[in-house]
Computed example of a mutant assay.
Amino acid sequence: MRGTAVLALLLTVSTSVFATDGRREQDYAADIQQQLSMGQVIWLKSAGKTYLALYTDAEKTDNSQVAIILHEMGEHPDAKPLIHRLRTTLPVHNWATLAVQMPIRESGAQSDDYYPLFDEARERIDAAVEHLLKNGAKHIAIVGYGMGALMAAYRLGDKPNDVMALVSISLPVPQTTATQAQSLDLIKKVQLPFLDVYAEFDLPAVLDSARQRRMAGKDNPVYRQIRMDGEDHGYQQDYDLLVKRVYSWLTTTVSED
């Protein structure tokens, strides 16, 4: 009996170790719903879990072009300033947005703690794509920031179906043996229009690997890398310019039929 109880405890612990922090997600969702001033709450479901996403209509189009927005590690779909600005500004430039709550760990968790969540992240991206297709989307792009960019690359390297382009903002190349986080291999697999944006004073895992990422993308004719001068990882000097770079590239690269 004692051995059975111990085994059950270990299974419970191991399951929780590799699961999203549901309570933290709920807290984020409650705060967002109280303060939301633009867009609408959409509840998505995958792997038996329900989670929040924020959908914002494009102002002058039929919403057939949609950008899925994926936040940085430990954040949420309305994180300010960058994620909020992306999800609310792209709609002014003909791209509806769906900012999705990605799996998160407890406060203080490190990058290595997130890699076991990547399969769950992929399922959430799949659910977002499916939701958009059912609601008339024809051109879907993903815009990911930091860990969100790495999660997007993981999904698109495995199966790009129904996604037409990827914008990675501060995509890291971590020093890890985790198969989910082999960024350079993922870049080689993503044969889609691919914009790789990073900051002049970005995090070491991003800045020091810029040339490696360029080399990994050299066989992709629609891979482009941009450095934002004077910026650090937060892009706080001129995040409006960063957002402009994103929607300008999407507009010129992903065209309507």
Rank of each mutant, 00 (worst) to 15 (best):
144 G>I: 12
123 E>W: 03
195 L>Y: 09
142 I>Q: 03
141 A>V: 15
141 A>M: 02
182 Q>Y: 09
217 G>H: 08
138 K>Y: 01
130 E>H: 09
134 K>T: 10
194 F>M: 13
217 G>S: 07
185 D>H: 10
133 L>P: 00
144 G>V: 06
125 I>C: 11
144 G>F: 00
141 A>Y: 00
209 S>A: 15
128 A>H: 03
141 A>D: 04
200 E>M: 14
161 N>T: 10
172 P>Y: 01
185 D>F: 00
120 E>V: 08
145 Y>E: 13
130 E>I: 13
175 Q>V: 04
167 V>D: 01
198 Y>P: 02
174 P>S: 06
168 S>F: 01
175 Q>A: 15
218 K>Y: 04
213 R>D: 02
155 R>T: 05
207 L>Q: 12
155 R>L: 11
179 T>N: 11
133 L>D: 05
170 S>D: 03
139 H>W: 00
198 Y>Q: 10
152 A>S: 15
205 A>C: 01
163 V>D: 02
158 D>H: 13
187 I>Q: 10
216 A>T: 08
206 V>A: 10
189 K>C: 02
209 S>C: 02
121 A>W: 02
195 L>S: 04
220 N>Q: 04
149 A>F: 00
173 V>T: 12
149 A>W: 00
141 A>G: 10
118 F>E: 11
133 L>H: 00
126 D>H: 08
115 Y>N: 06
150 L>S: 10
177 T>G: 12
215 M>A: 13
133 L>G: 03
128 A>K: 04
215 M>N: 14
165 A>I: 07
169 I>C: 05
123 E>N: 13
134 K>G: 15
182 Q>K: 14
132 L>M: 05
180 Q>H: 10
137 A>E: 05
137 A>C: 12
200 E>K: 15
147 M>W: 01
126 D>G: 01
188 K>D: 11
189 K>A: 15
156 L>N: 10
144 G>Y: 00
208 D>L: 15
209 S>V: 02
128 A>I: 08
131 H>K: 12
180 Q>T: 13
139 H>F: 00
158 D>S: 09
176 T>G: 09
164 M>Y: 01
182 Q>V: 06
162 D>A: 14
140 I>D: 04
136 G>I: 09
193 P>H: 01
124 R>M: 07
215 M>R: 11
219 D>S: 04
136 G>M: 04
184 L>A: 07
122 R>S: 14
185 D>I: 01
120 E>T: 10
193 P>N: 05
202 D>G: 05
